[in-house]
Design a protein around this nucleic acid. Sequence first.
DNA 1: TCCCGTACTTAACGCTGTTTAGTGACCTGC
DNA 2: GCAGGTCACTAAACAGCGTTAAGTACGGGA
Lengths: 210, 210
Amino acid sequence: MSARPANPHLANDILATTASLIEEVGPEGVTMRAVAERIGYSATTIYLYFENKERLLNEAVNRAFDWFADRLERAQDEALPAARIRQAARAYLDWGLDNPGMYRLMFEWGYLGDISPESVFARRASWRRSRSLIEFGVSQGTFRRDLDSAVAADLMWATCHGLTSLAISGRMFGNPGTVDATVVRERSAALADALVDTWLSDWTGPPRDL
Amino acid sequence: MSARPANPHLANDILATTASLIEEVGPEGVTMRAVAERIGYSATTIYLYFENKERLLNEAVNRAFDWFADRLERAQDEALPAARIRQAARAYLDWGLDNPGMYRLMFEWGYLGDISPESVFARRASWRRSRSLIEFGVSQGTFRRDLDSAVAADLMWATCHGLTSLAISGRMFGNPGTVDATVVRERSAALADALVDTWLSDWTGPPRDL
DNA sequence: TCCCGTACTTAACGCTGTTTAGTGACCTGC
DNA sequence: GCAGGTCACTAAACAGCGTTAAGTACGGGA
């Protein structure tokens, strides 16, 4: 590991293959031999590029965190604060439901190892963006004057995670496979919207526009 | 399995040992041989009582769901609706943080297998209790008139799960071990309280009593 | 005493992550 | 042109995993 073969291309292939296997067979189904076979090398070759399986998965997770943060950042083209925060929540849910295997590895296998400083930084940046967005909404009069932006941002993230996690494990709206995935997606999004609704200064009823 | 030895006491021991191992070494650290060694039998004996490891864990999970529902039900001695719903949220968080291994198995290993009809029923009952509690709060004037009790109950559960899950994996307030557990517990509880706060009809600021 | 069923164990299989000991191709120096 | 060394990779093995097949010890009835 410390002195890796001079073939960064292969390291990349290993990571990409690992990421696709994580989605195909779930984090627990990934084996060193399966990764190796798919890239056409022997299992021991992987150990020339990664110290062990944990490090390999950890690196895959760190890449995914960057990818995830990227997606959240991109989903910011709405003009008004409420619409924009809802857009961010939807982007969160969508990413998690599109990449359930990786999502579980990222957020539920915390004992795997600490995430990279870059990923921590990216996540903090996303959180700060949410927070300042909420603050902006408060200053614009969209959200209630008394809304604490830090608390609201924390709640937003925790709720998005809760919805995504429950949707993936099938513990909220029925088991996956038995319930239509798009229904789960819509109900989750509706609940995230509902959270934002409670922050509106002029909120007087069930979901509406803006 | 289908024709088990006439020793229900041993089946019980296996389940109890499995449950404690889940907490001690995490769900992924549990092995048939470890369970067997602890109860003083050989690993194959377990197969006389449970079809395989998945069924064993599944049964342990179902017991835990009952235990969890029990705890939530017990935490209902507060008189006023807002205090009582907060109490339920705290009981939820506390149970999860007291039993992180089992909690992960229950809510994050959804692919393990469907939970038992009894557990599904118990969870639905808990959810309905939350909902009617919120409805009662609305009728009492504690919560905003326009609050949808079904949506609020869903949000409460999703948020409690999100907070618990993030607290366990260390993805919200820092990695476990590096951050004081009681701090994580308090911050999670404060956020759950904040969610309830937004439902209050006379809510005009940061956390207060009731 | 023989027999049978019950409760349990031993030994093995194929899988896993990981380590040790190579193998073969290529580059360098003479 | 060829020895020596390095670099990228592999084959074989180890311990541990879930699981199965075969076997053992014992107790009760005929």
